[in-house]
Design a protein around this nucleic acid. Structure first.
Lengths: 343, 343
DNA sequence: CTTAGCACTCAATAAGATAGAGTGCTAACA
DNA sequence: TGTTAGCACTCTATCTTATTGAGTGCTAAG
């Protein structure tokens, strides 16, 4: 177990390093106001903390920097709650200032402002549409061969996709079909749509519509792919400002990982509720070695629908970022709930 | 006027520099197979070419590099037509391999493949929707206060937006209104929609609908903002690979300019038909000083609808990129025309 | 247990030294 | 008169070497 003094020193070192990005030496630490013991004492404690794995040296005679284990301990036990600046809070609240109806816009604005506030990179995993329920299906013919299928979900999300229609088909038939489909499929989650069409509605349709099979096939296939949740980014290049990334190779690997959206999906997709901090290699991706990721989930009502995350260097302002994310995720949840749950 | 030999040397220098990114010296040039005169002669010619402004030195005793004026002359007069590799052509054609209906997907895929092919950054300005004509307007109520307006254009583009409805309004009334609007507004360009609603349809509506004024106001406002054309990017970080950007500051300015989409709009928006090359400062943006931009327009039918561009260092493979862009813009035009002009 | 003192280490910076690629100019040559 | 060999000169890049300063570990005294 760590002594109080060790905890105090560990915290002081990490705080200092987060601020300065420079290895912390015993002498400079001892000069701080609230430290009563000498640099030699600090050196001894540092040696112990290093042996325990909380600190590291960059070379034999350098000051100490936190190890991943050090950060982990710091985040779990030493984090002093951060009092957000009024300006910060105001900026966050400004996301919801104008009456916005589009979820995408809110999310995008959140990402932008959060990245400005932190100088880190913001990543938002938008709500998946797969679980949304169908509110209305609409088909608009464009010409004799193609039509557009439009899906409106209960959350107000609109998906659309072109598909080809058998040339023999009559416009009235399409209308008939749309009516039947709407009657039968309202409230069905999108992910079950095509399945439901085949199993329940196809039979019914076959009675009313002539060349229904080809049409239904096309349509079902069209409805089947409302794709993955969407990712939104803010401050993609903010990491360039961080002193730990003044190395070209590091930047290259990091930026190309950010552009590799699949990796980002992995990082953000399995998210239990609440705020979570993943430090360095805990992220299981080599390009994230010097980065930490703080994630927070947001919901509509009780249902968790997305994740908002900050990607920064391991030397990150954990306390402040956590406060910001906590506030924003709550605001986001209540705004979205207010907007969509009245239905 | 330049002599034949000067032209030959200028071309050789630029070709060499584009390949190697190293200043070209007289001695290394003279060693080339197809050069019959000595390095001293080349030195003399180089001095002349420098005096004329086509070449530059990086320092007093360095080899020569092309000046912007040199590149300009090279692009205008010395470009040898580039024979595309079969593999390149195949890759380009693969964009249209699967039957895709969504314009966005085609455009995105184009950007991706083009950036892979060139190792530069691709920027595509998608078709603007302002000129598209209304095919169908649809309104789907979500709850008592909000509804979604959906616009389908003649090109199959779908826009949607939430708006609030006066709580007193009846569902039937909305349906009535939608019918009237569709009857009156079909074929009207989106940019004229709200105007037309106020001037022609409002009177008509007032006869049939109770609390029409507030509703129409909301709706017209909603339809009014189908925003700017969309930008698509491919290989945003490809420039990191280019040797001229091994400098952190240059990368920072360049990448943040790319993320500043408004600058990109400026660069791509006023585009006469055909392929155009803008070299370095010709782009009028300081961050573009070491970059060239090659743009090509693409059309649906006769109507030019978008721009596809490659952003690379001034030391760019002009000939190859122009060939690639030329091929792609034509393919894109014919694919889109085939897809949308049958209406 | 704490601390002053000292020898030692390492990174960062600056200062020479050297090699190499390249130029400009001059004079000889065809 | 145009071309070329030769030479002195310039500048960059790279390698060495020296110096400084921040920092450590260890020892011995308080």
């Amino acid at each position: 177990m760590l002594t109080d003094r060790q905890l105090f020193i560990l915290q002081a070192i990490i705080d200092d390093f987060i601020r300065s990005a420079q290895p912390v030496g015993s002498r400079s630490l001892s000069k701080k106001e609230d430290i009563t013991f000498s640099s030699a004492t600090i050196r001894n404690e540092m040696a112990d903390l290093e042996e325990l794995g909380f600190l590291e040296k960059t070379h034999t005679s350098s000051g100490r920097i936190p190890s991943e284990k050090g950060y982990r301990y710091y985040v779990d036990h030493l984090l002093s709650p951060h009092q957000l600046k009024i300006k910060d809070v105001e900026l966050l609240k400004s996301i919801f200032a104008e009456k916005i109806y589009e979820l995408e816009k809110i999310v995008q604005k959140s990402a932008k402002i959060l990245s400005e506030l932190t100088s880190y990179t913001t990543i938002v995993l938008g709500p998946g549409v797969q679980e949304n329920k169908l509110r209305r299906l609409q088909i608009v013919p464009l010409n004799k061969e193609t039509a557009i299928a439009i899906i409106v979900t209960d959350t107000g999300h609109v998906e659309n996709k072109m598909f080809s229609i058998p040339p023999s088909l009559d416009v009235n038939e399409i209308e008939k079909m749309v009516n039947i489909l709407n009657e039968r499929l309202q409230g069905v989650p999108l992910m079950e749509l095509s399945d439901k069409i085949y199993r329940e509605v196809a039979v019914l349709l076959s009675r009313h519509i002539k060349s229904y099979d080809k049409l239904v096939q096309n349509l079902a296939h069209t409805l089947d792919v409302p794709g993955h949740e969407k990712l939104f980014f803010g401050g993609k290049t903010n990491m360039l400002q961080q002193p730990e990334f003044n190395d070209l190779d590091k930047i290259k690997t990091l930026l190309s990982m950010i552009d590799q959206e699949q990796d980002m999906y992995k990082l953000l997709s399995k998210n239990p509720a609440g705020i979570h901090v993943k430090i360095g290699r805990e992220n299981k991706i080599s390009a994230m070695e010097n980065c930490s990721l703080i994630t927070a989930s947001y919901s509509i009502g009780k249902e968790q629908v997305g994740t908002i995350a900050i990607l920064g260097p391991t030397r990150m302002q954990y306390s402040r970022v956590i406060s910001l994310l906590d506030l924003l995720s709550h605001d986001l949840t209540s705004a979205l709930t207010r907007l969509y749950q009245k239905a």
